[in-house]
Simulated scan of single mutants.
Amino acid sequence: MTKAQNNISTDQSTLLALKSHITTDPQNILVNWSTTTSICNWVGVTCGACHLRVAFLNLSYMGPTGTIPPHLGNLSFLVGLCLRYNSFHGTLPQELSYLHRLNLISFGYNNFMGTNPS
């Protein structure tokens, strides 16, 4: 397995972990989040043109209910994370602080509690 394949596999595993933490998906947005579809074609996922890694995750207004797993800290090329207007709950994992490229984050209108990771 090449390094690029390994990295995209990490991104895929990370997003499948997020999917497993979603208990309700009223709009069936995650139906194509499977190993039979390239993650760059998954609903809400945008990959970078050069590195073909997950650069943006936008599930805003899509209605899922669930929690955010610590695995999300593995999306090392993520620059944007938008989850606003959904029913996510619980605490935000400290592992989000690993996302050093992240420059856009929008979690408003969910049910998170606790403090934001630094």
Results as ranks from 00 to 15, higher is better:
66 G>E: 05
98 Y>I: 01
21 H>D: 12
96 L>D: 13
58 N>T: 06
87 S>E: 10
105 I>Y: 04
110 N>S: 12
25 D>L: 02
98 Y>H: 13
84 R>E: 06
94 Q>R: 09
38 S>L: 09
110 N>C: 09
92 L>V: 15
35 T>E: 07
36 T>K: 07
45 V>A: 12
86 N>A: 14
94 Q>V: 06
9 S>R: 05
52 L>A: 11
116 N>E: 07
79 V>W: 04
23 T>A: 07
101 R>W: 14
48 G>T: 01
64 P>D: 11
95 E>D: 15
38 S>V: 00
91 T>W: 00
49 A>C: 01
64 P>T: 08
19 K>F: 03
37 T>N: 04
86 N>V: 15
52 L>P: 02
58 N>M: 12
64 P>E: 03
79 V>A: 10
48 G>I: 04
98 Y>T: 08
53 R>E: 09
87 S>Q: 14
37 T>I: 15
104 L>S: 11
76 S>H: 13
4 A>P: 14
26 P>Y: 11
59 L>P: 06
97 S>G: 10
51 H>V: 15
37 T>S: 05
118 S>D: 12
40 C>A: 00
19 K>P: 01
79 V>P: 02
82 C>Q: 09
52 L>T: 14
6 N>A: 09
90 G>Y: 12
67 T>I: 13
86 N>Q: 11
54 V>T: 06
47 C>Y: 02
110 N>V: 01
97 S>F: 08
89 H>K: 12
47 C>M: 03
74 N>C: 08
3 K>D: 08
22 I>Y: 05
2 T>S: 15
27 Q>Y: 05
87 S>F: 11
13 S>W: 01
19 K>Q: 08
99 L>R: 11
109 Y>K: 04
44 G>W: 05
47 C>P: 10
67 T>H: 11
82 C>S: 10
66 G>I: 07
118 S>A: 13
80 G>C: 07
25 D>H: 12
18 L>C: 09
26 P>C: 08
107 F>P: 01
98 Y>P: 00
72 L>P: 10
90 G>S: 10
97 S>V: 03
23 T>P: 07
3 K>S: 08
105 I>G: 01
78 L>G: 05
67 T>V: 14
77 F>A: 03
47 C>W: 00
24 T>I: 14
58 N>V: 04
76 S>A: 15
62 M>Y: 06
37 T>P: 02
94 Q>F: 00
17 A>M: 00
70 P>W: 07
97 S>M: 01
44 G>I: 06
87 S>D: 12
64 P>K: 03
44 G>D: 02
107 F>R: 03
93 P>S: 09
40 C>P: 02
12 Q>I: 13
94 Q>I: 05
87 S>N: 15
